[in-house]
Amino acid sequence: MVTTDEKGPLTAKKKSVIIRSCDGDEFLVSESAAVLSTSLKKILEEKEDRLIHLSDIDNKTLAMVIAYLSTHADDGLSDDLKRSFDQEFVSGKEFDVLKYLVLATDTLQVTCLCYTVAKKMADIMKNKLVEWVRREFDIQNDYTPEAEAEIRRLDAWAWDDRQLEDD
């Protein structure tokens, strides 16, 4: 299956590339959008192949990243519009989705989007309990109960916070 990207019909003049996700779906993307990713740019410079296979990015995440790249490659849009697109882009997205996005943008080296997503993640994390953070990052608590109590005691003022969320 080939999905054309939403921004304008592809003309014969415009060069394009096909990007395949790990689920096997293929996306047709203009080269001007693809090269906003440093990794894709390198691949395109190194080989003639117009088909790029990304083995660790799934369909849903890739579609989102491509929507971002296409918007930012669109010369018809003002910087203001692009900025508000960025804000819209992360707003309301679940932490799980953001995790995939941050990994994908890190792999593809889309620095601006990686930063926007990381910022949104930090924004969500700052009001969460430690237990929530451990769950979301699949981290085992390797402190002994005594060590944990000692850390909490040292910065007791910082823990006296009634606004932390666990979901």
Partner: peptide, 21 residues
């Protein structure tokens, strides 16, 4: 890159996530 964007007070608490953090 992610935790650098946390303010200092949440970072104090993030020290408790694990020894690596």
């Amino acid at each position: 890159e992610i935790i650098l964007l946390l303010p200092a007070k949440p970072l104090i608490k993030s020290q408790l996530v694990c020894k690596h953090w």
